Simulated assay, not measured.
Amino acid sequence: MTDEHPHRPRLAPLPEDGWDPSARELLAPIPRDADGRLPHVFTTLVRHPGLFRHFLPFGTHLLRHGRLAGRTRELLILRTARNTRAAYEWGRHVPLARAAGVTDEEIRRVGAGPDAPGWTPADALLLRAADELHREARLSAATWSALAADHDEAQLIEITMLVGQYHMVAFFLNSAGTPLEPGFTTEALPAATGTADDDA
Score class of each variant (00 low, 15 high):
H5Q: 15
P6W: 03
P6M: 05
P9N: 05
L11S: 13
L11A: 11
A12F: 03
P13G: 02
P15V: 08
G18I: 05
W19H: 15
W19T: 03
E25L: 13
L26T: 06
L26P: 07
L26N: 01
L27V: 07
P29H: 09
I30P: 01
I30N: 00
R32Y: 00
D33N: 11
D35Y: 10
G36R: 06
V41Q: 13
F42A: 15
T44F: 12
R47I: 06
R47N: 07
H48T: 11
F52A: 01
F52T: 08
F52C: 01
R53Q: 13
H54S: 00
H54N: 00
F55Y: 15
F58V: 15
G59L: 15
T60R: 13
L63E: 14
R64W: 08
H65A: 14
H65T: 05
G66M: 09
A69Y: 04
G70P: 02
G70W: 03
R71A: 12
L78C: 07
L78E: 01
L78R: 07
R79C: 00
N83K: 00
H93N: 11
V94L: 00
P95W: 09
A97T: 04
A97R: 04
A97N: 02
A99F: 00
A99Q: 12
V102E: 06
V102Y: 05
V102R: 00
D104T: 10
D104Y: 06
G111M: 10
A112R: 08
D115H: 11
D115K: 03
D115F: 04
D115L: 03
A116S: 06
T120I: 00
A122V: 05
A124M: 07
L127G: 10
R128A: 13
A129L: 09
A129V: 05
D131H: 04
R135V: 04
A137I: 11
A137V: 15
A137H: 14
R138P: 12
R138Q: 11
L139H: 11
A142P: 00
T143N: 12
W144T: 14
S145W: 04
S145Y: 04
S145V: 02
S145G: 11
L147F: 10
D152H: 12
E153L: 07
A154Q: 15
Q155M: 13
E158M: 11
M161L: 13
Y166P: 13
A170V: 08
F171I: 03
F172S: 09
F172T: 09
F172G: 13
F172L: 14
G177C: 12
L180T: 10
E181F: 02
P182C: 12
F184G: 00
T186Q: 14
A188G: 06
A188D: 06
A188V: 09
L189K: 06
L189H: 01
G194Y: 08
G194S: 07
T195P: 03
T195W: 12
D198H: 10
D199P: 01
D199V: 02
